[in-house]
């Protein structure tokens, strides 16, 4: 089971944003997308979620074309965390996390919701915040709340083994060290529960450490896609970022200052 992108190209305002991009995210795998600003990372994510339709190419979830999956079904298949804007009205943290609960019938709600909610808030370390107002939280706390909401969306009855995917756009932005580690470890744990994960990151070391595979993207093209040990090379990374970069192996470390 996998999430596939096959030779996807996209032009916006006469500018080629994505050029013949192919990518595969298997169940239980963390794929990290890295690359300079404006490389097309977020657009790639928006194409994967179905927000934007590409000009050519195919996107499929478990061999089913995205076009043929209904909007509601898509929400059950993949959960997305993106850069967030503020909320206008004064929702409580509890309200915001609850928004991640997909409605699938009343018996599911009454039997499972409070347990799933409790687990997720505990896991993301936001259980102390749930009675606060969302707008009164710090940027990092808001991010953790959205992360909890994204995880709640992935909830499945225990007997279900439908494939699930998690797509995240720079989830660690604004997070302090401990929250960053918490989040990355939760991703690791979800991957071990067979969730396929695509995460856009800026920190090359974070990507090298946590990702099973890394996709390096520049000017809308995938320049390299594979295991971190194999693709993280001095000369190659230097050419991507235009900054002198040194890579040390065992353990893999990227130095750029």
């Amino acid at each position: 089971m996998s999430l596939n992108l096959e030779s996807v190209s996209l032009k916006l305002d006469n500018r080629q944003i994505l050029k013949d991009v192919s990518l595969e995210i298997n169940e239980g795998e963390i794929v990290s997308v890295i690359g300079p600003n404006g490389a097309g990372k977020s657009t790639l994510l928006n194409v994967l979620t179905g927000d934007i339709n590409p000009d050519s190419g195919e996107i499929s979830y478990d061999n089913k074309q995205l076009k043929q999956i209904s909007i509601q079904e898509r929400a059950f298949t993949r959960s997305v965390m993106s850069q967030m804007q503020t909320l206008v009205f004064n929702f409580s943290v509890k309200d915001v996390i609850e928004m991640g609960w997909l409605q699938r019938g009343n018996s599911d709600f009454s039997n499972n919701f409070s347990m799933a909610f409790k687990n997720v808030t505990k896991e993301c370390n936001v259980h102390n915040l749930i009675h606060r107002k969302f707008n009164s939280l710090s940027g990092g706390e808001q991010r953790r709340v959205h992360f909890a909401r994204t995880l709640l969306q992935l909830w499945r009855p225990s007997e279900s083994n439908d494939p699930r995917y998690l797509l995240l756009d720079e989830p660690t932005a604004n997070l302090d060290l401990s929250s960053e580690m918490l989040l990355m470890n939760i991703l690791k744990k979800r991957a071990s529960l067979n969730v396929g994960i695509l995460v856009i990151l800026h920190d090359l070391n974070l990507a090298s450490h946590f990702a099973d595979k890394i996709a390096i993207i520049k000017d809308g093209e995938i320049m390299a896609f594979g295991e971190p040990e194999k693709i993280m090379e001095d000369a190659f990374l230097t050419s991507i970022y235009d900054v002198p970069i040194k890579v040390k192996h065992d353990p893999l470390r990227v130095h750029y200052y």
């Binding site: 927000d51 909007i71 079904e73 898509r74 993949r78 959960s79 993106s82 009205f89 915001v96 928004m99």
Partner: peptide
């Protein structure tokens, strides 16, 4: 409920299964 989800922005509401 759909109006609640729209508060996250239209793209987010769509990603949560709202037409």
């Amino acid at each position: 409920r759909k109006l609640d989800l729209l508060q996250l922005g239209e793209p987010e509401a769509y990603r949560l299964g709202i037409d």
